[in-house]
Amino acid sequence: MTLLDFLLEPLSYDFMVRALVTTVVAAVVCAVLSCWLVLIGWSLLGDAVSHAVLPGVVLAYMLGLPFGVGAVIFGFLAVGLIGAIRSTSRIKEDAVIGIVFTTLFALGLVLISVVPSQTDLNHIIFGNILGISQSDQLQIGVLAAVALVLLLFKRRDLTLYAFDPVHAHAIGLSPRRLGGLLLGVLALTAVVALQVVGVILVVAMLIIPGATAYLLTDRFTRMLVIAPVLSAASSVVGIYLSYWLDAASGGLVVVTQGVTFALVHLFGPRRGLVSTYLASWSRRAVANG
């Protein structure tokens, strides 16, 4: 088999092309959002919201509404509940987050089990890249576009919010509203990613690319380029591997992202463990003559 066969054969199947396109779209939106999430310290919240949207998606399906609407409502509901319980009890925040999102997620599982539909439970939990239909694809494309446009349009405000919400407030911007915008986009993005890699792995797509990019640069604007490029590349590699190894595609996409993170952490040009070790080793060698 030549390299060309390796690359072209999967593309002769419609479902593979759709899987590639959809995964790359989801990976790019998640990666852009992840740049802010890792800097604000919202990784756990990202995990929570991506689980908590499930009942909203199922209810939207039942009522014939767009999935995004249900997801955004339940995303905010989850965050509202977390805030309310946190401020009215002595339970620590991580425990509150754990209680709220698992309960909402469980509610979603219950709803799926009683609602007659073609949606297989396994697809929600593990994703179903290879089985994505044209209408799913359209919906994913629209949600991804909305999320991406909002993020890029408000990118400077969101970065200000992440860096110095007090200053944002002092000059008359509303940190609450900016945080709300980010949450809404998080809920939309969760719906996009959920259909591709499944609920369990969404959080990986929402954290790893931003974290990897953060290891590589001191410029936020560069993070916004590096994260989606790495994430898209990992997705393509993951999908090809899944075709040729006949293994779980969502899993392989995330494994590839994780391996990329590990490589950058070890061999990154400035902060990589190996390069900093070599640099200090050569400094010592020079110092010792």
Binding site: A168, I171, R219
Partner: peptide, 28 residues
């Protein structure tokens, strides 16, 4: 203590944040 000094912004970016309330919706 209230500032994340590892945040990936340049000195210029930080000072520009002082102008944001005068700028349009994208703060360009």
């Amino acid at each position: 203590e209230d500032v994340d000094w590892n945040f990936p912004v340049s000195v210029h970016d930080v000072v520009m944040m002082g102008r944001y309330s005068r700028l349009g919706p994208t703060r360009r």
